[in-house]
Design a protein around this nucleic acid. Sequence first.
DNA 1: ATGAAAGCGCTAACAG
DNA 2: CTGTTAGCGCTTTCAT
Lengths: 345, 345
Amino acid sequence: MNDLKTTTKRPGTVTLADVARLAGVSTITASRALNNPKMVSVETQERVKAAALSAGYVPNLLAGGLKSNRSRLIACLSPALTAGSIFIVAIQAMTEAFAEAGYQVIIGQRSFDQAREDRLIDAVIARRPEGIVLMGVLESEAGRHRLRASGIPIVETWDMSDSPIDMLVGFSHIDAGAAVARYLHDKGRKRPAVITSSNDPRAIARGQGFIDAASALGMGTPSMNVPTHGFISPSKMIHGREGLRELLTQHPDLDCVFCATDVVALGALAEANAQGISVPEQLAIIGFGDSDFAVAANPALTTVRVEGVEIGRLVASQIMARVEGKNLEGGAVDMGFCIVERGSG
Amino acid sequence: MNDLKTTTKRPGTVTLADVARLAGVSTITASRALNNPKMVSVETQERVKAAALSAGYVPNLLAGGLKSNRSRLIACLSPALTAGSIFIVAIQAMTEAFAEAGYQVIIGQRSFDQAREDRLIDAVIARRPEGIVLMGVLESEAGRHRLRASGIPIVETWDMSDSPIDMLVGFSHIDAGAAVARYLHDKGRKRPAVITSSNDPRAIARGQGFIDAASALGMGTPSMNVPTHGFISPSKMIHGREGLRELLTQHPDLDCVFCATDVVALGALAEANAQGISVPEQLAIIGFGDSDFAVAANPALTTVRVEGVEIGRLVASQIMARVEGKNLEGGAVDMGFCIVERGSG
DNA sequence: ATGAAAGCGCTAACAG
DNA sequence: CTGTTAGCGCTTTCAT
């Protein structure tokens, strides 16, 4: 037996100890050469790097994270993603910002079933992420408590709340709905309707804001909650299509519709088209989200713009600031929204 | 000093040792009571569970995974997700199937830049995921080698390959394009075009398959590669809209267009609509993907259906089988595709 | 059915 | 600039 101690490590795995041995240094020096090059002479730095390369070394972040308490993991809890989901750009922007800083994002699917959501939260905390991002706010009191107790930086997004768990980056859906009602009223529209989704609390809030403001302005509002099957797809183009058809049979004299999302608006547009109703002359159609396709519709969609990319980036920087010990207060940021006037209303 | 050994653990963290102490058992018994209840008497089982609950214990999967070599993590490497991305349903289905089995999915963004992609692969292997799912095949030889060397089960998806890294669940994009050409030919269309994307290799393959088959059938094909800005959005509705406009100025007599994706087709539909071109009478428009909105377009989109949900589920079950020591061979599964005839062509 | 010991692979803390 | 020691929190192995 010579000095090459036979570690009982798993076969086929090359560890930092192997690299260190190859480079003729201690493991900690190898660690430093790889992760903190400044602490090590240029010469050993290069020897270690060469050794790592030739051995095909890939660090084990599970081990490193355990010791250093830095998992470099971020959890993102979002409702099920669909083709028209309004969250995708924000998630995309966030994932990118985090990746640049060496973090990776794990995705968990939120559920309207509270017990399931609580289980998800436990599963997520078990990973010891350095930040948790919620698309939407969290209703479950048990979940909120558990998250707060975890001490992990939390950001709720895409909504407002009187009592955020920790940080929050969002805007008011009620205000957005109300703004659309005022916008249509100013345009001289008289008989509004809304197509929303029965299981998306934010879409419901937008609808309610719209309805309340429309009533206050003396416009009536035939609303329409489109039931979705299960909890898979909170808003789909087909809902807009069928929703408008249904609305028109009951209220043939509608002159404007506010849709829960841009995809829903696309569906309403298709239905109007199919029925030979001219948009915006006979019927104004307003979407929500200013998705990238809004501008490409015919006519281009008038919609509520929300800065999804900005939200994603801000969320990332807020969490990273907190991780670095800055920005300790938490609190809410209202990102606002604006109405983008295009051709549809 | 009494027998409560003061572990030097991080303050505010409740560990398995705390739970064990509370329940008056050893840590390993506590571990078993929580993760392997059968090995423990019902009585201690309940004592431990009660202790865990009252202490607010959440296991540390980093630590467990380190020792057991079971990270319960799956990595999914996908091109940037956009509103119209064709991968979303598959990712969604896969995430759900994995979550049910106690795995969580981490998302990494693929890039057309090879060096960046290789770095992503290292970052991902560093997490020791139990499976890696690639949306698309991997081109980089260095990356392929590194993945193979990792010993981690890999599934490439949404494409075919002569030499998959390991497992593969996909279909032939060339065949799909060719099938569309034959379909249109059989319908008596004579002057075809294709709108594809300049930076999505699979969209290019579909376009090429279409062009080659169209030529073989004696139809000419004015193609159109829509350049995208950066690598953010491989296919957007606006590309369909602008692409068709451009094509029509050069070839006003087109009678059919094959679009790279359904969103692109939606854009082409909008443009046809804007120009007063009747679909499908004057112009047939064929999409790809059979996204959930295809059926809601006006006219409903004729498109190539690919079983995204099935792909996602199969991928999950293949990886989990491999993890359990079954299904050791690897190899390719061709999921095929079919053309769904609707109103647009 | 339960426990003691050992150690997964790495890095913080303290030397030198 | 480099090394030694001691764990992170859990689970495997081998006893009992």
